[in-house]
């Protein structure tokens, strides 16, 4: 009597309100996830569709490698903008990466717990500052500084330049890269450090031969994620980089990165039909590059989790 009565009881309860709520949670969760994933795909397809008319007019090599940007004459060579984006991003990374590695190693391996907590808190605040504010600081401080520097080195510059863009961008990605790097370094298990220290290694030897070796994939991922973020950053760079459609040849030359091109011009010259398509194609490049870098980084980040477990 008891067992069968019990079973009856359970089945009738599960087919009640709990069961419906459970199903609802499952279905709505799935739906949201599908929508989010579909959104990425939709944006990509949308960009592709809007950019497509351009390729009826110009060849892919003209599009990527021609320097003539004359929308009025239907010439849409993106080369200056691609070079602008790549060089301002690379410059930012060259400045930021050594700083970030040093800071992350100090915070993770040397600093006391309290100092680390305070520093991470400040870094999180820095990372959350809206990019316009970085841009303003760039205009007020960095641009005059670069102008001064340029004068010293005998080149005529307004200060609105590749160098100013690189500096502002570096300052912006530094908290982001430090934050991930510290996280990665803390993933290295403490007993491993203990092993090296117990053999009489100094802290620095432990960092150099053991911790960095164990964390190198993750740190690379931090740098790549930083690169992806810098690559797509728009506002702050746009404000200080000068925005002249030419291939920059010196640090003091103005540059014109892809995001700035889109932000400055979209919706303005709608009278030229292909302009729209050209800007969409620029957006497509941005999306592909940033997406590829992010995916690579997450793939390598996952890898470090595996090696730490083994």
């Amino acid at each position: 009597m008891m067992p069968s009565g019990n079973k009856q009881f359970i089945i009738s309860r599960l087919s009640g309100g709990r069961r419906i709520r459970e199903a609802l949670a499952l279905v709505s969760g799935r739906l949201v996830l599908i929508l989010i994933n579909a959104l990425a795909l939709l944006i990509f397809c949308g960009l592709l569709w809007k950019a497509a008319p351009l390729f009826g007019i110009i060849s892919v090599s003209d599009w990527l490698f021609s320097s003539s940007w004359h929308p009025m004459k239907n010439q849409f060579g993106l080369f200056p903008f691609i070079v602008g984006t790549v060089s301002v991003t690379l410059l930012a990374m060259i400045i930021a990466v050594p700083v970030c590695l040093g800071a992350a190693i100090y915070l993770s391996e040397y600093a006391g717990r309290r100092f680390r907590e305070i520093a991470r808190w400040l870094i999180d605040i820095l990372a959350g500052i809206p990019s316009v504010i970085y841009g303003l600081c760039g205009v007020l401080v960095i641009v005059p500084f670069v102008a001064f520097l340029g004068e010293l080195m005998g080149s005529t510059t307004t200060g609105y330049s590749l160098l100013a863009g690189g500096l502002v961008l570096a300052v912006m990605v530094i908290p982001f890269i430090i934050s991930i790097s510290v996280e990665v370094l803390r993933m290295v298990p403490d007993p491993l450090r203990e092993c090296a220290l117990a053999l009489g290694a100094t802290r620095w030897e432990t960092v150099k031969y053991v911790v960095l070796k164990k964390a190198k994939r993750g740190l690379l991922a931090a740098v790549v994620l930083g690169f992806a973020r810098a690559f797509g950053e728009t506002m702050a760079v746009l404000m200080v980089v000068g925005n002249v459609a030419q291939v920059p040849v010196s640090l003091f030359d103005p540059a014109y990165p892809l995001p700035a091109l889109i932000a400055n011009n979209y919706g303005e010259v709608m009278s030229i039909p292909l302009y729209d398509a050209a800007l969409m194609s620029a957006a497509l490049i941005l999306m592909l590059v940033v997406g590829a870098f992010s995916l690579t980084a997450h793939y390598t980040l996952l890898k470090i989790g595996e090696t730490v477990d083994s």
Partner: peptide, 18 residues
């Protein structure tokens, strides 16, 4: 570091160096 060289330590789990 000198002390630890004279008094070696074998941990609970081996944790091979990378």
């Amino acid at each position: 570091t000198c002390l630890r060289k004279r008094v070696g330590f074998l941990p609970q789990r081996p944790y091979p160096l990378p």
